[in-house]
């Protein structure tokens, strides 16, 4: 054997961790958490192993859609500072491999979720993958400033899938969990866009900050935060919530609205002066906001012996 071409590292000679990074593990952790809450608060019972498999397949499906997104967006990921270290722009994984992994894991996760649980849960997972990879990544992201508003639906489906895994149906509670994430996504991402401004500008992604200006973005953050509050508090009146959730939701939404008002009252000069301190704080709090809402739903049944369970 004198062939030396296989000796040198080449693009595509990736380690396992590079392939794992294609699945967007941080997004996946949020998906696992919200799907798990949807599953645990749903009425009915399910065998623990089936529940484990259900959440695992939802996570794999979410990862698959992440890989498809990275395959499609490799060109703009090379431009944006935030995404330059992703496996494809970093030259660790070829875009062909990313596509193959995305498609294979999509089919795998949907079929196994169907076999393990039911057709509705599998159908919702398939639609979620399609929505994120095709509707959001291919159609909306580069064509409309409403990209993350509509695309946010993809991230909002996991608790509904978790609910469907147990019940085989979708009900008001599941729709409200969907609505919380759906309404939360725009202010969360627009706050990020305000302080990561050059990234989206350079890549030509029509974020609201680029197309309609930063004043309009601040207005929109406030509007969506105000619309989010009744949805989040409204969930507190359903069967899966209780007084603890309601109290937490009221406090979190009051604080979130306060942050949105502060962002709305500021102009660019003020923001540049303190390096977007308020916007960054709002973005960080938005993560805590979502975690605590779903966390409160999770602990509600556990508080029943103390008189603070569901209604």
């Amino acid at each position: 054997m004198t062939d030396t071409s296989i000796n040198k590292p080449e693009t595509g000679d990736a380690q396992f961790s590079d392939f794992f990074a294609l699945l967007k593990p941080r997004v996946m952790s949020l998906v696992v958490f919200t799907a798990l809450v949807g599953l645990l608060v749903a009425p009915g019972t399910i065998h623990p192993f089936l529940a484990f498999c259900g959440i695992l397949f939802v996570a794999i499906g979410a990862g698959a859609s992440g890989a498809l997104n990275m395959w499609w967006d490799a060109d703009i990921d090379r431009i944006m500072r935030r995404t330059q270290k992703r496996p494809i722009p970093a030259g660790k994984v070829t875009s062909g491999d990313a596509l193959a992994i995305g498609l294979a894991l999509s089919g795998f996760s949907v079929v196994l979720l169907w076999l393990a649980t039911n057709a509705l849960a599998a159908g919702l997972l398939a639609f979620t993958i399609f929505f994120y990879a095709v509707v959001y990544s291919m159609w909306l992201k580069r064509s409309t400033p409403q990209n993350i508003v509509i695309g946010g639906a993809a991230g909002a489906f996991p608790p509904v899938i978790g609910w469907a895994i147990v019940t085989g149906t979708v009900s008001l509670e599941a729709v409200l969990m969907f609505a919380i994430i759906f309404m939360w996504t725009p202010p969360h991402f627009w706050a990020l866009a305000l302080f990561m401004k050059s990234d989206y500008d350079d890549a030509g992604v029509p974020m609201l900050t680029v197309t309609h200006g930063r004043r309009t973005t601040r207005n929109h953050i406030l509007i969506y935060t105000l619309l989010l509050a009744p949805v989040a508090v409204g969930l507190g009146l359903t069967a899966i919530a209780g007084p603890i959730y309601l109290a937490i939701a009221i406090a979190l939404n009051a604080w979130f609205i306060k942050g949105a008002i502060e962002i709305w009252r500021r102009d660019e000069a003020q923001a540049e002066f303190d390096h977007y301190k308020t916007e960054k704080a709002f973005f960080k709090f938005s993560l805590l906001y979502l975690f605590l809402h779903f966390g409160a739903l999770l602990v509600t049944p556990a508080l029943a012996p103390f008189g603070f369970g569901g209604w």
Binding site: H47, F49, L50, C53, A116
Partner: peptide, 8 residues
């Protein structure tokens, strides 16, 4: 996982 699913 497939074996466990089958058993369950």
């Amino acid at each position: 996982i497939v074996f466990g699913l089958t058993v369950v």
